[in-house]
Amino acid sequence: MITAGDFRNGVTFELDGNIFQIVEFQHVKPGKGAAFVRTKLKNIVTGATVERTFNPTDKMPKAHIERKDMQYLYSDDDFYHFMDVETFEQMPIGKANVGDALKFVKENEVVKILSHKGNVFGIEPPTFVELKITETDPGFKGDTATGATKPATVETGAVIKVPLFVDNGDVIRIDTRTGEYMERV
């Protein structure tokens, strides 16, 4: 059991038959009245976010989320296919369960498969990935005073904003949590 007073970002718990992960939390102690905890929760099965307040003494059962390393093999019309790196078993996961979590992941990279009681609900890509720029417009000399950016397509097909000095063929590091350009490699 976990009390609302012990909430931290990323903690998962069961509430009303659903499993939620804390996205944001704030302990509030007003001048008058009792303290409370204001939260933004993400339903890990549906992906919906809700805002809810709790008393600091409210107790909920903690949900155990399994994170398993699996190698991304390939995708077809309806499924992404993964291989367990320990047992070499292959597992297809429906594209609806994955969402856009793989937009920065190349084939043969290792990702974490998230599941609760055997039901896969999501994928955690590596925090940083290095990808090659396949298509971008050339930057203009002298147009750097404003920190301007331009769209660029990486080898996985995702489009991100990059600085003007990045060219086709450059390898860049991307933060997969935000989808932002970090640096040229």
Rank of each mutant, 00 (worst) to 15 (best):
I19C: 12
L15E: 11
F20G: 00
P30I: 03
H27Q: 14
V50Q: 06
G33H: 08
I44Y: 01
Q21K: 15
Q21F: 04
G47R: 04
E24P: 00
K42T: 04
I22Q: 02
Q21D: 11
T49I: 10
E24G: 09
N43I: 00
V28T: 11
L41A: 00
V45T: 10
K32I: 13
I44S: 04
F25A: 10
G47A: 09
K40Y: 04
V23F: 08
Q21E: 15
T49Q: 07
F13E: 02
Q26L: 10
H27I: 10
D16C: 04
T46A: 05
N43T: 01
K40L: 08
G47V: 03
F20Y: 15
R38W: 10
D16A: 13
T46C: 03
K32Y: 13
F25Y: 15
F20K: 07
T49W: 01
K29D: 14
L15P: 06
F13A: 03
F25I: 08
I19Y: 10
T39K: 03
K42N: 03
I44C: 07
L15Q: 13
R38L: 14
N43Q: 02
K29A: 11
Q21V: 11
F36H: 05
V45H: 14
K29E: 14
H27C: 10
T39S: 04
L41Q: 00
F20P: 05
I44D: 00
A34G: 07
L15G: 08
F13I: 00
L15K: 13
I19M: 01
G31V: 09
E51S: 13
A48E: 15
F36V: 02
L15I: 08
E24M: 08
V50E: 12
D16N: 15
Q21W: 08
G33F: 07
V50I: 15
G33K: 07
V45E: 14
I44R: 01
V23E: 14
I22V: 15
V50M: 11
G31D: 12
V45R: 13
F13S: 06
G31W: 12
V37I: 07
N18F: 14
P30C: 05
N43S: 00
T46N: 06
G47W: 03
K42C: 05
V37P: 00
V45S: 13
E24R: 12
